[in-house]
Amino acid sequence: MIIYSVMPMEMIMKNLDSTEYQYQEAEIEGVKMLVEPVPHSTEVKIVRLMSPNPQDYLNPKYMPGQTIHFRPEISHS
């Protein structure tokens, strides 16, 4: 990646390593994906698909950046 900027590189890269993500693996409608919870909501934002099925990648419903309703199942052990 090349960044052209008049700002010092230290200022551009400041706090880059301190970002924390709350990614979770989930299987929604049979499609395995990496999601990020939306604060104060029952929705998640799709970050990445991890499905071996090429048809899942063609479905606009599962496009990264989309938000979908998700309620995690609680396992009873």
Score class of each variant (00 low, 15 high):
P64T: 00
V38N: 06
H69W: 09
M1R: 08
E29D: 09
N59M: 10
S5H: 03
G65N: 04
Q22D: 01
K45L: 06
V35W: 02
K32V: 13
L49W: 13
N59C: 12
P8V: 12
H69F: 10
N53P: 01
Q22V: 02
E36S: 09
A26L: 03
D17S: 12
N15S: 14
Q55V: 09
E20L: 13
E73W: 00
P39E: 10
Y62P: 02
I28H: 02
K45I: 08
I2H: 14
G30Y: 09
G30K: 09
I2R: 10
K14Y: 03
P39W: 04
M33K: 00
G65R: 03
M33R: 01
P72R: 06
M1S: 15
S77E: 15
S51T: 15
P60N: 12
Y57L: 03
S41Q: 02
N59R: 10
P52A: 10
S5D: 11
M11G: 07
M13C: 08
I68K: 00
Q66R: 13
V31L: 00
I46L: 05
G30D: 08
M63E: 14
V47D: 09
Q22P: 00
D17K: 11
E25W: 05
M50H: 12
M11C: 08
H76T: 13
L16C: 05
P37Y: 00
E25C: 01
A26W: 04
D17C: 07
N15Y: 15
S75V: 08
S41V: 02
K45A: 10
M13E: 13
V44Y: 00
E36D: 11
S75F: 06
H69A: 10
Y23F: 15
Y21F: 06
M13I: 11
L16K: 11
P37R: 00
P54A: 09
